[in-house]
């Protein structure tokens, strides 16, 4: 206790000297420590399963659902889409490292030339447009299916998001994502952190709130409430609506920065998408 007060003071001291931010790795380790203390019985990798890490009855239903995973069709359809060549004869495989197989652990990344965060979904559309195809709609549909297939081929890989400290743009994007995460929005005045840090594990009505740690590992997700597979940014939009804020556009700078921050926080956890959630 004394120690934590001391370290709080130290952190406070650092903040007052450098009002910018602690580094990404310090943030991640602090997050890991916070949730490990809050959920001492949950093994680290289990945080990738969201509320099923600590809600036993929800977990049982989820495991049952995984017998016939509702996202399976999306993986199959996504594979067909992924492997179908564009009109110019090229395909998605030509746009990505390793032919696009097992690469999701590297997304999002900061594109220093473009000066922006590139999510997997954005990269898929950039690939299409570079090959003369129309961009697909974000959040649901074919794009989510392609992402589901790419996530599937990346299962088991450890998240390895890079925020190069010698890249001011990358650090700024990460910091902006962090700020967004802690910023109160909407008429109900919640920040992401209000629910997913301060209240992680508690119930809103019958639903237990997930931890920030592991929140980015399992996308896209087939959510029973949606009745379809959707991307992480669809969930951002939904969270914003739930606090009575008008959602921002999918792949807006803010949402991409947020995804960058959240993904970095889950570094070291194994990817486990696509997944099902209720």
């Amino acid at each position: 206790m004394k120690k934590s007060i001391l370290s709080l003071c130290l952190i406070g001291g650092i903040f007052s000297v450098l009002p910018a931010v602690a580094g990404p790795e310090e943030d991640r380790l602090a997050m890991v420590k916070y949730y490990s203390d809050r959920f001492p019985d949950v093994p680290m990798q289990e945080f990738a399963n969201g509320l099923y890490a600590f809600d036993q009855s929800a977990r049982e239903q989820w495991i049952e659902m995984e017998d016939f995973p509702p996202y399976e069709i999306a993986i199959d359809d996504g594979q067909v889409l992924f492997e179908t060549p564009f009109a110019n004869g090229k395909s998605y495989a030509d746009c990505f490292d390793n032919g696009g197989i097992g690469v999701k652990q590297d997304y999002p990344y900061f594109d220093a030339d473009a000066g922006e965060v590139v999510t997997l979904e954005l990269a898929i559309n950039q690939c299409r447009e570079a090959n003369g195809e129309k961009a697909l709609a974000y959040m649901i549909g074919e794009l989510a299916e392609i992402a589901a297939y790419m996530a599937y081929t990346s299962r088991g890989n450890e998240f390895a998001i890079q925020v190069p400290l010698d890249s001011p743009g990358a650090v700024a994007a990460y910091s902006a994502g962090k700020q967004f995460f802690y910023t109160r929005r909407g008429q109900l005045n919640f920040a992401c952190s209000s629910c997913h840090i301060q209240s992680a594990g508690l119930n809103l009505r019958a639903d237990r709130l997930s931890t920030t740690l592991g929140q980015a590992t399992h996308w896209p997700v087939y959510r029973s409430k949606w009745g379809e597979i959707g991307t992480i940014q669809k969930r951002f939009a939904e969270c914003n609506s739930q606090v009575w804020a008008k959602p921002l556009e999918a792949q807006s700078v803010e949402y991409r920065n947020l995804e960058y921050f959240l993904s970095y926080i889950s570094n070291g956890l194994e990817l486990n998408g696509p997944a099902s959630r209720r």
């Binding site: 629910c195 209240s199 508690l202 119930n203 809103l204 009505r205 019958a206 709130l209």
Partner: peptide
Amino acid sequence: CLACHAIKGGDLAGNY
């Protein structure tokens, strides 16, 4: 209010 608070007479209350 039930989203977060248990209240006598209300179902499916949260404990936020």
